[in-house]
Nucleic acid binder design. Structure first.
Ligand SMILES: [Mn+2]
Ligand SMILES: [Mn+2]
Ligand SMILES: [Zn+2]
Ligand SMILES: [Zn+2]
Lengths: 154, 154
DNA sequence: ATCAAAATTTGGACAATGTCCATAATTTTG
DNA sequence: CAAAATTATGGACATTGTCCAAATTTTGAT
């Protein structure tokens, strides 16, 4: 799988470095991860990596279309490797949990704004706000930020 | 008009203070304003107001449904007084300009997620990303720095 | 109008997230 | 392998926002 990552990097004219390969693996394993969490995980692989490299790499991956960045209120940016399918996100107002949700209407329907004000639109980001099942029952008044610990994708 | 603001505050069980009246006026005058910009403007009215009061007040107005907060990537939170109509936003990737755009399909259509994962959804935030007319013509002169655009050592 | 309780405001410290910059190290090119 | 290009590093710095305890203002009841 790391091999595919190398190919992806080369196809985009990017140097192949251990840092980039590791971060590609990381966002593949942990969807909706913060830069900080990615740093922590990458460090277990690499021994060390600078914070700046993590930001540079994640930003660059987004730029190249190899990763996607979402930014819910009250949360640092989250990164994921699921790109190109224009999917959306459910975000819990209480605990910050994030879930993927497929586009409601079909292929990139949201790119049709009612009036584009002469903007050239390339993406529609949809965030559904609410309460996750756990926070509905717990009725918990607690917590505000700090994305919770995440489990790796199986 | 300040009178209406006073009524609004009382109806929500809130004390009426010069700071709150001024900020209500401010977000009415300047849609999509940052907390910092609001502070600057409010200070011209009031002489002084603490940063904390501005945040407290704006957050509280959002909480009470008297204001709305949007948070585009790479931008501080923006506040506006246009609430309850589920309108959306165009954001320029280059200069950050924000424009209102009415809901494409009708009344709160976006609250219909294809699969709600058992979340209780109360809002759908839609952000259309692209380039504003000005930035389309100006080309990439004022682009923000990315790993790719950073200068090599001199 | 006056007073005490409740609510709000203030300022300074602090936290979180992210970028800038110069230099060092690594990777790619030839 | 050496030169050139690219990338990584770390430390300073900027921005945005919150925490906290003391001071002030507002409210509600005499
Ligand atoms: Mn996702
Ligand atoms: Mn708006
Ligand atoms: Zn939750
Ligand atoms: Zn623009």
């Amino acid at each position: 799988m790391i091999d595919t990552f190398e190919t992806q990097l080369r196809e985009h004219g990017l140097s192949v470095t251990a840092q980039r390969l590791t971060l590609l693996q990381t966002i593949s394993d942990y969807p909706h991860i913060t830069a900080d969490q990615a740093t922590e995980i990458a460090r277990k692989q690499l021994g060390s990596i600078s914070r700046q490299s993590v930001y540079d790499t994640l930003n660059m991956l987004v730029e190249k279309g190899l990763a996607r960045r979402i930014q819910p209120f009250n949360s640092p940016a989250l990164f994921e490797d699921r790109v190109g399918d224009n999917h959306h996100h459910l975000v819990c107002r209480n605990c910050g949990a994030v879930e993927d949700v497929d586009c409601a209407v079909g292929y990139r329907p949201c790119l049709q704004a009612s009036d584009d004000n002469n903007f050239v639109i390339d993406e529609a980001e949809v965030t559904y706000w609410g309460l996750c099942p756990k926070c509905q029952s717990k009725n918990s008044k607690s917590r505000k930020s700090t994305p919770q610990t995440r489990k790796a994708k199986s």
